[in-house]
């Protein structure tokens, strides 16, 4: 049922990673992704993967939870591994069947890609598991803030406000969809049977009321916001202040070390 869809992946824990400034987390995530791509040999890749696991450990969230996310991309991993295994020639021939030839270097490439994809997924999950959607929105707004100097101040603010409102209304819309579906089912509508066109037609009794209620909601919300003196970015000061604290500086330094070692390993081997 639709209701079971939980929105956002945030898992509340009292960990170092949870307490980090969301702006820093977002920034470091981007940096980690770049350096995972930059790791060009087995040593550097294994090193940055080990660092990733250390971060997972610090987040106090079980590995099992993290690996749930990997399960979903297993088909992608298999597909890329196969491509790599089949198309890299070099090293000794291990297996051949007709035109299919697998060399040792193919196996190596496949393993390399798999580890790289898994690291990417894991490090991205850290952000989504340890940061509330609201914090994430704030982080995006402040990371985009340099754009303000390009005269895009309102655009940045509007984007962030749109994200905030979207996050706020997703649960309400899910609930509403569920209710409208039940109401139409009570009038004998069936959504499970029939051909494609019939099914699309069967969606109209749900989509139209949903659309209308969303428009009504947005008007009401606009009035409520206006009544509370909303005037865009102009003169607006956020209550929540973001400060860097020791933990943030420490994490930043730790990451710099990880990135440097990765590059050094790249060069050495």
């Amino acid at each position: 049922m639709i209701k079971d869809v939980s929105f956002g992946q945030y898992i509340s824990k009292n960990s170092l990673i949870h307490k980090l400034d969301p702006r820093l987390k977002l920034f470091l995530l981007i940096a980690y992704i770049i350096f995972i791509f930059l790791a060009s040999n087995a040593y550097s890749l294994l090193f940055i993967t080990a660092a990733t696991f250390f971060i997972l450990f610090l987040s106090k969230i079980s590995l099992k939870t993290y690996f749930k996310n990997i399960r979903m991309i297993i088909p992608i991993i298999i597909f890329t591994s196969l491509l790599n295994a089949l198309y890299s020639g070099g090293g000794t021939l291990l297996f051949s069947y007709g035109f299919i030839k697998i060399y040792t270097s193919g196996i190596y490439r496949a393993c390399f890609m798999t580890v790289r994809i898994i690291s990417l997924i894991l490090i991205s999950s850290v952000l989504s598991y340890t940061t509330t959607p609201t914090d994430l929105t704030d982080a995006i707004e402040s990371l985009l803030s340099p754009l303000k100097y390009l005269g895009l101040k309102n655009a940045v603010h509007t984007m962030a406000m749109m994200m905030t409102i979207a996050l706020r209304f997703i649960p309400a819309l899910i609930e509403e969809t569920d209710k409208i579906m039940s109401s139409q089912k009570a009038r004998g509508a069936s959504m499970e049977s029939g051909g494609l066109i019939k099914r699309i037609k069967a969606l109209l009794p749900i989509l139209i009321p949903l659309l209308i209620s969303s428009i009504r909601r947005s008007y009401e919300l606009a009035e409520a916001m206006e009544s509370r003196c909303y005037n865009g970015a102009e003169g607006r000061v956020r209550m929540k202040e973001m400060h860097f604290i020791n933990k943030d500086y420490f994490s930043f330094a730790f990451s710099i070390v990880v990135f440097s070692v990765t590059i050094i390993l790249n060069i050495l081997f």
Partner: peptide, 17 residues
């Protein structure tokens, strides 16, 4: 049975389309 047992939800006007 849904035709025999008619259910009117709360705020049923939201189902009009």
């Amino acid at each position: 049975f849904r035709f025999k047992i008619g259910l009117v939800f709360q705020y049923p006007e939201y189902q009009l389309f």
